[in-house]
Protein backbone atom coordinates (compact mmCIF):
# COMPACT_ATOMS: atom_id res chain seq x y z
CA UNK A 1 0.00 0.00 0.00
CA UNK A 2 2.69 2.44 1.04
CA UNK A 3 4.76 1.37 -1.90
CA UNK A 4 1.84 2.09 -4.22
CA UNK A 5 1.43 5.56 -2.75
CA UNK A 6 5.10 6.21 -3.28
CA UNK A 7 4.82 5.11 -6.91
CA UNK A 8 1.84 7.37 -7.47
CA UNK A 9 3.55 10.31 -5.81
CA UNK A 10 6.75 9.89 -7.84
CA UNK A 11 4.64 9.51 -10.98
CA UNK A 12 2.75 12.64 -10.05
CA UNK A 13 5.91 14.59 -9.35
CA UNK A 14 7.53 13.41 -12.57
CA UNK A 15 4.35 14.45 -14.38
CA UNK A 16 4.59 17.85 -12.79
CA UNK A 17 8.25 18.06 -13.79
CA UNK A 18 7.37 17.19 -17.38
CA UNK A 19 4.53 19.72 -17.38
CA UNK A 20 6.85 22.37 -15.94
CA UNK A 21 9.48 21.62 -18.54
CA UNK A 22 6.89 21.84 -21.33
CA UNK A 23 5.65 25.10 -19.85
CA UNK A 24 9.11 26.62 -19.65
CA UNK A 25 10.01 25.51 -23.18
CA UNK A 26 6.73 26.90 -24.53
CA UNK A 27 7.36 30.22 -22.82
CA UNK A 28 10.90 30.31 -24.17
CA UNK A 29 9.72 29.55 -27.71
CA UNK A 30 7.07 32.26 -27.48
CA UNK A 31 9.67 34.67 -26.14
CA UNK A 32 12.14 33.81 -28.93
CA UNK A 33 9.43 34.28 -31.57
CA UNK A 34 8.57 37.62 -29.96
CA UNK A 35 12.24 38.71 -29.91
CA UNK A 36 12.71 37.73 -33.55
CA UNK A 37 9.56 39.52 -34.71
CA UNK A 38 10.20 42.56 -32.59
CA UNK A 39 13.11 43.31 -34.94
CA UNK A 40 10.87 44.57 -37.68
CA UNK A 41 9.33 47.39 -35.66
CA UNK A 42 11.05 50.61 -34.59
CA UNK A 43 12.46 50.14 -31.13
CA UNK A 44 11.56 53.45 -29.58
CA UNK A 45 8.49 55.60 -29.99
CA UNK A 46 10.48 58.67 -28.95
CA UNK A 47 13.97 59.28 -30.22
CA UNK A 48 16.59 58.13 -27.72
CA UNK A 49 19.30 60.50 -26.52
CA UNK A 50 22.24 58.18 -26.94
CA UNK A 51 22.81 54.45 -26.97
CA UNK A 52 25.76 52.49 -25.64
CA UNK A 53 27.39 50.82 -28.60
CA UNK A 54 29.63 47.82 -29.06
CA UNK A 55 31.76 47.92 -32.20
CA UNK A 56 33.34 44.62 -33.24
CA UNK A 57 36.47 45.12 -35.33
CA UNK A 58 38.09 42.56 -37.59
CA UNK A 59 41.45 42.69 -39.26
CA UNK A 60 42.43 44.69 -42.34
CA UNK A 61 39.60 45.28 -44.76
CA UNK A 62 36.89 44.72 -42.15
CA UNK A 63 38.15 47.55 -39.97
CA UNK A 64 38.51 49.92 -42.94
CA UNK A 65 34.86 49.31 -43.85
CA UNK A 66 33.66 49.75 -40.27
CA UNK A 67 35.57 53.04 -39.95
CA UNK A 68 33.94 54.32 -43.15
CA UNK A 69 30.59 53.72 -41.48
CA UNK A 70 31.68 55.30 -38.18
CA UNK A 71 32.89 58.42 -40.01
CA UNK A 72 29.35 59.18 -41.21
CA UNK A 73 27.49 58.15 -38.03
CA UNK A 74 26.66 60.92 -35.58
CA UNK A 75 28.83 59.65 -32.79
CA UNK A 76 27.00 61.53 -30.04
CA UNK A 77 24.06 59.20 -30.71
CA UNK A 78 26.24 56.17 -30.11
CA UNK A 79 28.00 56.50 -26.79
CA UNK A 80 29.71 55.25 -24.82
CA UNK A 81 31.48 53.27 -27.55
CA UNK A 82 33.15 49.96 -26.78
CA UNK A 83 35.58 48.69 -29.38
CA UNK A 84 36.41 44.98 -29.41
CA UNK A 85 39.09 43.29 -31.50
CA UNK A 86 40.75 39.89 -31.38
CA UNK A 87 43.60 39.64 -28.86
CA UNK A 88 45.98 38.80 -31.71
CA UNK A 89 44.97 41.87 -33.72
CA UNK A 90 46.78 45.05 -32.63
CA UNK A 91 46.25 47.12 -35.76
CA UNK A 92 42.45 47.41 -35.54
CA UNK A 93 42.32 48.95 -32.07
CA UNK A 94 45.10 51.33 -33.08
CA UNK A 95 42.99 52.49 -36.02
CA UNK A 96 39.98 52.89 -33.72
CA UNK A 97 42.17 55.00 -31.42
CA UNK A 98 43.11 57.22 -34.37
CA UNK A 99 39.42 57.58 -35.21
CA UNK A 100 38.49 58.50 -31.64
CA UNK A 101 41.37 60.98 -31.47
CA UNK A 102 40.14 62.64 -34.65
CA UNK A 103 36.69 63.03 -33.05
CA UNK A 104 38.35 64.57 -30.01
CA UNK A 105 40.27 66.94 -32.25
CA UNK A 106 37.00 68.02 -33.87
CA UNK A 107 35.35 68.49 -30.48
CA UNK A 108 38.21 70.55 -29.10
CA UNK A 109 38.37 72.69 -32.24
CA UNK A 110 34.64 73.22 -31.86
CA UNK A 111 35.08 74.13 -28.19
CA UNK A 112 37.80 76.64 -28.99
CA UNK A 113 35.54 78.16 -31.62
CA UNK A 114 32.70 78.25 -29.13
CA UNK A 115 34.77 80.11 -26.61
CA UNK A 116 35.64 82.71 -29.21
CA UNK A 117 31.96 83.04 -30.04
CA UNK A 118 31.00 83.24 -26.38
CA UNK A 119 29.21 79.86 -26.37
CA UNK A 120 25.83 81.33 -27.24
CA UNK A 121 26.06 80.58 -30.94
CA UNK A 122 27.30 77.08 -30.42
CA UNK A 123 24.33 74.82 -30.05
CA UNK A 124 25.67 73.06 -33.16
CA UNK A 125 25.24 69.37 -32.52
CA UNK A 126 24.57 69.94 -28.87
CA UNK A 127 28.25 69.54 -28.11
CA UNK A 128 29.76 71.49 -25.30
CA UNK A 129 33.24 70.82 -24.10
CA UNK A 130 34.16 72.71 -20.98
CA UNK A 131 37.91 73.09 -20.72
CA UNK A 132 38.34 71.34 -17.40
CA UNK A 133 36.80 68.10 -18.60
CA UNK A 134 39.22 65.23 -19.03
CA UNK A 135 39.70 64.01 -22.61
CA UNK A 136 38.55 60.49 -21.65
CA UNK A 137 35.18 61.82 -20.56
CA UNK A 138 34.79 63.74 -23.79
CA UNK A 139 35.57 60.80 -26.00
CA UNK A 140 33.54 58.18 -24.13
CA UNK A 141 35.30 55.26 -25.84
CA UNK A 142 36.74 52.07 -24.43
CA UNK A 143 39.00 49.58 -26.16
CA UNK A 144 38.94 45.88 -25.40
CA UNK A 145 40.46 42.70 -26.72
CA UNK A 146 38.73 39.35 -26.93
CA UNK A 147 40.19 35.84 -27.07
CA UNK A 148 39.61 34.02 -30.31
CA UNK A 149 38.08 30.56 -30.12
CA UNK A 150 40.52 29.19 -32.65
CA UNK A 151 43.66 30.55 -34.21
CA UNK A 152 44.51 29.62 -37.78
CA UNK A 153 46.17 26.22 -37.76
CA UNK A 154 45.29 25.34 -34.16
CA UNK A 155 44.43 21.67 -33.56
CA UNK A 156 40.77 20.76 -33.04
CA UNK A 157 41.38 19.06 -29.69
CA UNK A 158 42.92 22.09 -28.00
CA UNK A 159 40.39 24.36 -29.69
CA UNK A 160 37.59 22.85 -27.54
CA UNK A 161 39.25 24.33 -24.46
CA UNK A 162 40.08 27.65 -26.09
CA UNK A 163 36.52 27.93 -27.42
CA UNK A 164 35.14 27.57 -23.88
CA UNK A 165 37.55 30.23 -22.65
CA UNK A 166 36.57 32.50 -25.55
CA UNK A 167 32.84 32.09 -24.79
CA UNK A 168 33.38 32.80 -21.09
CA UNK A 169 35.40 35.88 -22.00
CA UNK A 170 32.74 37.08 -24.44
CA UNK A 171 30.08 36.61 -21.73
CA UNK A 172 32.17 38.60 -19.26
CA UNK A 173 32.65 41.46 -21.75
CA UNK A 174 28.93 41.50 -22.58
CA UNK A 175 27.96 41.60 -18.89
CA UNK A 176 30.44 44.42 -18.35
CA UNK A 177 29.35 46.55 -21.31
CA UNK A 178 25.68 45.55 -21.78
CA UNK A 179 25.46 47.44 -25.09
CA UNK A 180 22.20 48.70 -26.59
CA UNK A 181 23.60 48.66 -30.11
CA UNK A 182 26.02 46.18 -31.67
CA UNK A 183 27.80 47.05 -34.92
CA UNK A 184 29.71 44.25 -36.60
CA UNK A 185 30.88 43.42 -40.08
CA UNK A 186 32.32 40.01 -40.44
CA UNK A 187 34.98 38.68 -38.13
CA UNK A 188 34.11 35.38 -36.45
CA UNK A 189 34.59 37.00 -33.04
CA UNK A 190 31.23 38.74 -33.47
CA UNK A 191 29.28 35.47 -33.37
CA UNK A 192 29.61 34.62 -29.64
CA UNK A 193 28.94 38.29 -28.81
CA UNK A 194 25.79 38.36 -30.96
CA UNK A 195 24.55 35.03 -29.58
CA UNK A 196 24.99 36.30 -26.02
CA UNK A 197 23.23 39.57 -26.93
CA UNK A 198 20.33 37.52 -28.35
CA UNK A 199 20.15 35.41 -25.15
CA UNK A 200 20.14 38.63 -23.09
CA UNK A 201 17.11 39.71 -25.11
CA UNK A 202 15.31 36.39 -24.68
CA UNK A 203 15.96 36.37 -20.93
CA UNK A 204 15.06 40.04 -20.57
CA UNK A 205 18.50 41.04 -19.27
CA UNK A 206 19.21 43.68 -21.89
CA UNK A 207 17.52 44.73 -25.11
CA UNK A 208 19.92 45.47 -27.93
CA UNK A 209 19.83 46.02 -31.67
CA UNK A 210 22.32 44.10 -33.80
CA UNK A 211 23.48 45.60 -37.10
CA UNK A 212 25.61 43.48 -39.36
CA UNK A 213 27.25 44.77 -42.54
CA UNK A 214 28.56 41.99 -44.74
CA UNK A 215 32.07 42.63 -46.05
CA UNK A 216 32.38 44.18 -49.50
CA UNK A 217 34.59 41.20 -50.38
CA UNK A 218 31.47 38.98 -50.34
CA UNK A 219 29.89 39.31 -53.74
CA UNK A 220 28.15 36.00 -54.38
CA UNK A 221 27.85 34.30 -50.99
CA UNK A 222 27.47 35.49 -47.40
CA UNK A 223 30.36 34.77 -45.06
CA UNK A 224 29.83 32.11 -42.38
CA UNK A 225 29.19 34.84 -39.77
CA UNK A 226 26.70 36.59 -42.05
CA UNK A 227 24.95 33.36 -42.96
CA UNK A 228 24.58 32.34 -39.29
CA UNK A 229 23.13 35.70 -38.27
CA UNK A 230 20.80 35.68 -41.29
CA UNK A 231 19.54 32.12 -40.91
CA UNK A 232 19.13 32.36 -37.13
CA UNK A 233 17.30 35.72 -37.45
CA UNK A 234 19.75 37.25 -35.00
CA UNK A 235 20.71 40.45 -36.79
CA UNK A 236 18.10 43.20 -36.55
CA UNK A 237 19.35 44.59 -39.83
CA UNK A 238 21.76 42.84 -42.14
CA UNK A 239 23.35 44.88 -44.90
CA UNK A 240 24.99 43.51 -48.04
CA UNK A 241 27.10 45.58 -50.40
CA UNK A 242 26.24 43.95 -53.71
CA UNK A 243 22.80 43.67 -55.37
CA UNK A 244 23.42 39.99 -56.24
CA UNK A 245 23.44 39.12 -52.55
CA UNK A 246 20.20 40.99 -51.91
CA UNK A 247 18.56 38.85 -54.57
CA UNK A 248 19.83 35.71 -52.90
CA UNK A 249 19.02 36.80 -49.35
CA UNK A 250 15.83 38.89 -49.63
CA UNK A 251 15.67 39.87 -45.96
CA UNK A 252 19.03 41.65 -46.30
CA UNK A 253 19.30 45.38 -47.06
CA UNK A 254 21.24 46.74 -50.02
CA UNK A 255 21.76 50.50 -50.05
CA UNK A 256 25.14 50.81 -51.70
CA UNK A 257 28.74 50.22 -50.73
CA UNK A 258 30.87 51.43 -47.84
CA UNK A 259 34.15 51.54 -49.78
Amino acid sequence: MEKGDFCISTMASSNIAVLLAIGVITLLVIRIIYVINRRRKPLHSKSPRSLSTLIVLGSGGHTAEMLNLLYVLQTERFKPRYYIAAATDNMSLQKAHVFEDSLLGKLLAHAVQCEKLDFTFCTGRGVKVPNHEAPEEVGGAEFMQIYRSREVGQSYITSVGTTLVAIAHALWLMIKTRPQVILCNGPGTCIPLCVIAFLFKVLGIRWSSIFYVESIARVRKLSLSGLLLYKLHMADQLFVQWPQLKEKYPRAHYVGRLM
Binding site: P42, L43, R77
Partner: peptide
Protein backbone atom coordinates in the same frame (compact mmCIF):
# COMPACT_ATOMS: atom_id res chain seq x y z
CA UNK B 1 18.57 52.99 -42.10
CA UNK B 2 20.23 52.45 -38.71
CA UNK B 3 18.88 55.81 -37.47
CA UNK B 4 15.39 55.01 -38.70
CA UNK B 5 15.51 51.61 -37.02
CA UNK B 6 16.65 53.06 -33.69
CA UNK B 7 14.17 55.91 -33.81
CA UNK B 8 16.67 58.75 -34.33
Amino acid sequence: LIYRYLGF
